[in-house]
Amino acid sequence: MLFTWLMLTGCILFFTPQGLTGKFQLAFVDIFRWPLSLGGNVALTARTHKSFDGAPGGDEAHLRNYIANLEQTLSQQSKKLRELYGLYNTDIWEGADWALAGVITRTVEGPRNELTIDYRKKKGLVKGQYVLGGESVIGTISDVFPQLHTARVKLITDATSQIPVELAGVPTIMKGSGGNFAVIETLKKKVDVGEKVFARRKAGLMDASIIAGRVARCERNHKTASTWDITVEPACDIAALEDVAVIIMNPKT
């Protein structure tokens, strides 16, 4: 009898809409924000030894992403200028606002990857907005809990994530594959390792292409030999991020 009642409780919980039960998960993170973020700092300290093996450090990666974004913006602006020759040209980020948020918890290993962020003192966050970390796109908002100023970020590496990207001038879709990697399947041209992958602009959410990752591997597709499967690694060390920024286009003041 005890088992039946508890199983019934589990089923009720399971069939309750995720929009409602997800709030419990966010509330837990909000209540235990301090010990959870303290744990994150401890883990971060333990990870710092990894940055001495010749890999670019956090600041260097940050600057490289910033330069890549500037180059891409310049290219986009130039194209726009050519198209609208003689007409006015507006700043692509005009009217955009940024919600800075601290990272409370992060799940970056395994198939499902997400961050829980704290965006105090800011309004206007909604599902689907792009999130930047280290000057690169790291994911999108998947759930918001305005009462607690807490939100969840589905990372680009999450196995259920799909975002439109541009690689070597080819528009395509990048899917998360878990384990801190994403993949672009059946690309029709070979690309070099290290090539930049840009998240494509999306009206109302992001008005400029921003770097999202770099090509880590390029292998022939097993089924169609004329196409290539690309493995992409995020442009920044997501596990080390302490702060992120959410892009809010055309905020309501």
């Binding site: 089923c11 919980l13 399971f14 966010l26 829980t116």
Partner: peptide, 16 residues
């Protein structure tokens, strides 16, 4: 509770 991004319920059922 800590299983996000999975929804709530599946762990309670399977663990139980």
């Amino acid at each position: 509770l800590i299983g996000s991004p999975l929804p709530m319920g599946p762990h309670m059922i399977s663990f139980g």
